[in-house]
């Protein structure tokens, strides 16, 4: 195990088998050496691998983009709205009308007759599984994706 230690510091004579190694090869030379090991198709493989890696992130981590908003009233589905265009929706409940605002990719409860306004203050919902519940007026707004990653998200 002790052999070779002195060679690292350069204090020992160069091994006779490598007369060309006058000095440590520069970083550029080393890079060239390694690059020669890659054939043209290898770059293709590496590129495809990188594309595969990059493609897997959104595929695995988005759990399906937010695609629609499910509005429930009194436990029944009142409406399923595509999160593609801007629109507002009025949902009747025992206390009055809850107003749902939909924008591309997100939705929120814009107004609610409930006393504490929790669902209104929750703001925009954009991820699949997020839900705002206006309990006093028996209205809920939930974001759904293609596949539901979670049963529900709460904060």
């Amino acid at each position: 195990m002790a052999c070779g230690c002195c060679c690292v510091t350069g204090s020992c004579p160069m091994p006779p088998s490598e007369p060309a190694a006058t000095a440590a090869p520069s970083l550029g030379q080393r890079w060239q050496e390694w690059r020669h090991l890659l054939r043209p198709g290898d770059w293709l493989t590496l590129g495809l691998g990188a594309v595969l890696c990059a493609g897997l992130f959104p595929l695995a981590w988005q759990g399906g983009a937010a695609e629609k908003a499910v509005v429930r009233s009194g436990g029944q589905v009142f409406a399923e709205v595509d999160l593609k265009q801007r629109r507002t929706l009025e949902v009747p409940g025992p206390l009055g009308r809850t107003v749902i605002a939909v924008e591309p990719g997100r939705a929120r409860v814009a107004a609610d007759p409930g006393p504490r306004q929790y669902c209104v203050r929750q703001g925009w919902l954009a991820r699949p599984g997020e839900i705002a519940i206006c309990a006093p007026n028996h209205v809920s707004l939930q974001i759904a994706g293609r596949t539901s990653a979670y049963d529900s998200l709460s904060y």
Binding site: L37, L38, R39, P40, G41, D42, L44, T45, L46, G49
Partner: peptide, 9 residues
Amino acid sequence: WFGPVSLSV
């Protein structure tokens, strides 16, 4: 065209 690096990946 395809060397050990391709096979390895």
